[in-house]
Design a protein around this nucleic acid. Structure first.
Lengths: 115, 115
DNA sequence: CTGCATCCGACCCGATACTG
DNA sequence: CAGTATCGGGTCGGATGCAG
C-alpha cells in the first residue's frame, strides 16, 4: 500500500494547512453527512450519490487518520461498521454549516449564471 | 485549451455543489487572501508560497468564470492586473473565517497527534 | 456487509521556455 | 509584469474481482 506522503503540508498559513485536512473529493460531504449522527458504511454510500466504494473507503481512512472521525467495528456476522464524528470533527460544524448556508443562498443564482 | 467538463456537478446536495465551486488546490487560499483587498498577480504569488504561476493562473480563471472574483486589466506598460472579490466572493467570508478559526484552534493539536 | 488488490486511463500540476 | 505553450510524470479515481 502506498499510503505515502501526500501531504507535505506546513506549506503556509493556517487556512492552507487546515485545508489539507479536508481536501479530497468527498471529505467535506462525508463530514457533513455525519453531522446528523452515526452512519454505517453503506448508509454513507447511499447518502452520497456518485462516490465509489473505493473512494469512500479511502476518504474515511484519511479522515480517521487525521482524527476527525471515529470508526467502530462490531465483531459480528454480518459485519457492522459505524462511523461518527470525533470531538475534533464536530468542531468543524461551524465551517460545514457556513458552507451549506452559503450554498443555499448563492447556488441558484450562480448556476443560473453559469448556464 | 481543453477547459472541458471537469465538473459534471449537480451530483447531489447543496454542500456538494457548493464544494465544486471552491475545490481545487488553491482556490480557498486565494479567496482568503483576497478578503483583505485587491491584489495584483505577483502579490498573490508571493502571498501563497508553493503555488506555481501556471496554477495561480488556472485557479484565478476558474474563480473568475464562477463569478467569485473580478479581474481588472489596466492597458499600460508594464501590464497591471488586479484581482478582487466579487460580491459573491465576499459572501464566502463567513466560510473562510470559520475555516481559519477552526485551523487556529485545532491545527496545533492535530499536527502534534499526527506526528 | 464491509472491505482490500489490481489494472489502467485521465487529469492534475510542476518545470521550463517563450510572448506582448 | 502577467501571462501562454508544451512536455511529461505522478496521482487520482473508476471498474472489476476477491475475501472475511
Amino acid at each position: 500500500m502506498p499510503r505515502v506522503l501526500k501531504k507535505p503540508s506546513s506549506t503556509g498559513c493556517s487556512v492552507e494547512r487546515a485545508l489539507s485536512l479536508i481536501d479530497g473529493k468527498w471529505k467535506i460531504v462525508i463530514l457533513y453527512k455525519l453531522l446528523r449522527g452515526t452512519l454505517r458504511f453503506n448508509e454513507l454510500r447511499r447518502l452520497i450519490p456518485g462516490v465509489t466504494q473505493r473512494m469512500l473507503t479511502n476518504q474515511l481512512r484519511e479522515l480517521e487518520a487525521d482524527g476527525l472521525i471515529v470508526r467502530v467495528v462490531y465483531a459480528q456476522v454480518p459485519p457492522r461498521v459505524e462511523y461518527s464524528l470525533s470531538a475534533r470533527g464536530e468542531s468543524l460544524e461551524p465551517v460545514l454549516l457556513a458552507l451549506k448556508d452559503w450554498g443555499d443562498t448563492n447556488l441558484s443564482s450562480i448556476e443560473a449564471q453559469a448556464a
